[in-house]
C-alpha cells in the first residue's frame, strides 16, 4: 500500500489556524504595549527627576536600542529558562518586547516632560500645588501632547517586531503563515495575506498619527 499524506492543499480549515495566529499577535502586542508603556512612563519620569537613575539606567536603554530584537528574544528565552521561570513562549515574547518598549517609551516620556516650560511648573508650584499635583495636573497633560505621536510610532514598531516572536516558538501570525507555506507551498497568497494584515493595522494608524502631529502644535 502506498503511503499518502492527508490533504496538503490550502483549505478553509486553515483559516482557523491563521485566525489563531492573528489572535496571538494581538495578544502579544497588547500585553507588551501595556506592560512596556507603564514601565516606560515610570522609568521616563524617574530619569527626568533623578540624575542617579539617569546614570544607572543609561546603559540599559543604550543596549536595548543597539541589539537586534531577534537576539533579545533569544536571550529572554534562554535566560528565563535558566532561571527556571516558566516555559511559555508568550511570556518570553512579552518580556523581551516589554523591555524594549519600556526603554524607548522612557525616552519619549522624558522628552515630553522636558518639553514642559519651566515657568509653567514654577507657576503651578507657586499656586500652592505640591510636586505630585504639579506632575499630574500640569506636566503630564502637556507632556502627553508632545509624546503621543512618537509613542504611536513605537507601538507600530512593536507590532511589526512582534512578527519575530516566532523564533522563540510563539505561533503569531507571521509564524503561522510560514508554517502553512511550508505545508502548502502557496507562498504568494499566504505572504500577501501576512503583508496585508500588518499593512491594514499600521497604515491607517500612521496616517492618523501624522495628521495628529500636524494638528497638535504645542
Amino acid at each position: 500500500m502506498q503511503f499518502q499524506f492527508a490533504n496538503q492543499g490550502l483549505g478553509w480549515s486553515d483559516t482557523y489556524f491563521l485566525a489563531q495566529g492573528v489572535l496571538n499577535t494581538i495578544r502579544l502586542a497588547v500585553a507588551a504595549t501595556i506592560v512596556g508603556t507603564l514601565a516606560g512612563i515610570v522609568l521616563g519620569w524617574l530619569r527626568t527627576v533623578s540624575v542617579t537613575v539617569r546614570f544607572i539606567t543609561a546603559p540599559f536603554i543604550d543596549i536595548v536600542r543597539s541589539v537586534p530584537m531577534i537576539i533579545q528574544l533569544i536571550l529572554a528565552n534562554s535566560f528565563l529558562s535558566l532561571l527556571g521561570i516558566g516555559a511559555s513562549p508568550f511570556l518570553f515574547g512579552t518580556v523581551a518586547l516589554s523591555l524594549w518598549m519600556s526603554a524607548v517609551t522612557a525616552e519619549v516620556v522624558r522628552a515630553g516632560l522636558l518639553s514642559v516650560p519651566l515657568q509653567y511648573r514654577k507657576s503651578a508650584r507657586s499656586l500652592g500645588m505640591n510636586g505630585l499635583q504639579e506632575l499630574v495636573y500640569i506636566s503630564m497633560p502637556l507632556a502627553f501632547r508632545t509624546a503621543l505621536t512618537p509613542w504611536i510610532g513605537l507601538v507600530l514598531s512593536l507590532i511589526k517586531d512582534s512578527a519575530l516572536a516566532g523564533v522563540v516558538g510563539y505561533v503569531e501570525y507571521m509564524r503561522s503563515t510560514q508554517i502553512l507555506i511550508t505545508r502548502t507551498h502557496e507562498t504568494w497568497l499566504l505572504l500577501m495575506g501576512a503583508g496585508l494584515f500588518y499593512f491594514i493595522i499600521c497604515y491607517p494608524v500612521s496616517r492618523y498619527s501624522r495628521r495628529l502631529e500636524r494638528r497638535i502644535v504645542v
Binding site: 517586531d161 505572504l191 503583508g195
Partner: peptide
C-alpha cells in the same frame, strides 16, 4: 514602513 522587516525579507 508599514510591514514588518521579516515580511519584506520573506518576499
Amino acid at each position: 514602513r508599514n510591514t514588518p522587516a521579516v515580511f519584506q525579507l520573506y518576499i
